[in-house]
Simulated assay, not measured.
Amino acid sequence: MDPEHRALLRAHRLDLSGQLLVSDTIVPFLYQEDILTETQVEDIESQPTNTQKSLKLLDILPSRGPRAFDAFLRSLDEFSWVRDKLLLELRTRPGPSSTDVRRLPDSVLQKVPSDRELSRLASRLGAEWEPVLMDLGLSPEALFRCRSDHVLSTHGAVLAGLVQWRRSEGKKATAQRLLQSLTAAGVHPSVLEDVLM
């Protein structure tokens, strides 16, 4: 999925999760279009509330390839006002080229992120959190431990991984290093800028 589309879904995450009923038509359509696997459909449907089903879908979608966003828009036939709002914003917002991104000052890039900043970052990362932590140097065992220690909270698992990375790297655990791993995992730089600025 394009960084621009990821950023749009992230920006409207709460709005979408409150308005969409994904079980009726959206999830079946995305499964039919080969965007979602059977396991992912079961994962979404196992969520207790409609809002949580929508949030789970929004976590999965960005990792489902270049066709995922267009298929998601096509699945919104019964929610045309939502689709129109997303399309309008796509047309009016500037595309995320390197010139559009606010450049973080070197003083910010060289500092070690605080617990609060890491917590804010953890709440903004979706399905791409594992590739980010792997790129930062966490072992598969450490990732498994983060997941199993925080089974009910993705935020808790991500935060535990980020804190572990910062502890092991010390002064080398800078925002600059974090930015490199986020970029490698396809996360738009604006995510880190929102957290740090």
Rank of each mutant, 00 (worst) to 15 (best):
M1G: 14
M1I: 12
D2I: 02
R10M: 15
A11T: 08
R13Q: 13
D15Q: 10
G18V: 01
L20T: 05
L21D: 13
S23Q: 10
T25C: 03
P28H: 11
L30G: 02
L30T: 04
Y31K: 14
Y31M: 11
Q32T: 13
E38V: 09
E38M: 12
T39P: 00
Q40P: 04
E45M: 11
Q47S: 09
T49N: 03
N50I: 00
T51F: 04
L55H: 13
D59S: 02
I60S: 04
I60T: 11
L61Y: 11
P62D: 07
P62S: 02
S63N: 10
P66G: 05
P66A: 12
P66T: 09
R67G: 05
A68N: 08
F69S: 00
R83L: 04
R83P: 01
P94G: 07
T99I: 14
T99F: 11
T99D: 12
R102A: 13
L104M: 15
D106R: 13
V108M: 08
L109S: 07
L109W: 01
Q110P: 00
V112M: 06
V112Y: 04
V112Q: 09
S114C: 03
S114G: 12
D115I: 01
E117L: 13
S119M: 14
R120Q: 15
R120F: 06
G126Y: 01
E128K: 12
E128S: 11
W129Q: 02
P131F: 14
P131R: 12
P131Y: 13
L133E: 06
M134V: 15
L136D: 03
L136E: 09
G137D: 05
L138M: 11
P140Y: 08
E141C: 02
E141N: 09
E141R: 14
F144K: 09
F144P: 00
F144H: 11
F144Q: 07
C146G: 08
R147D: 08
V151W: 02
L152A: 07
S153K: 06
G156F: 08
G161S: 04
G161Q: 03
L162D: 05
V163M: 13
Q164L: 15
Q164E: 06
R166N: 02
S168Q: 14
E169I: 00
G170T: 05
K171F: 06
K172C: 05
K172N: 10
A173I: 07
T174N: 10
A175M: 04
A175Q: 01
A175Y: 01
L178I: 10
L178H: 04
S181Y: 03
T183E: 15
T183I: 12
G186K: 09
P189Y: 06
D194M: 10
L196Y: 06
L196I: 15
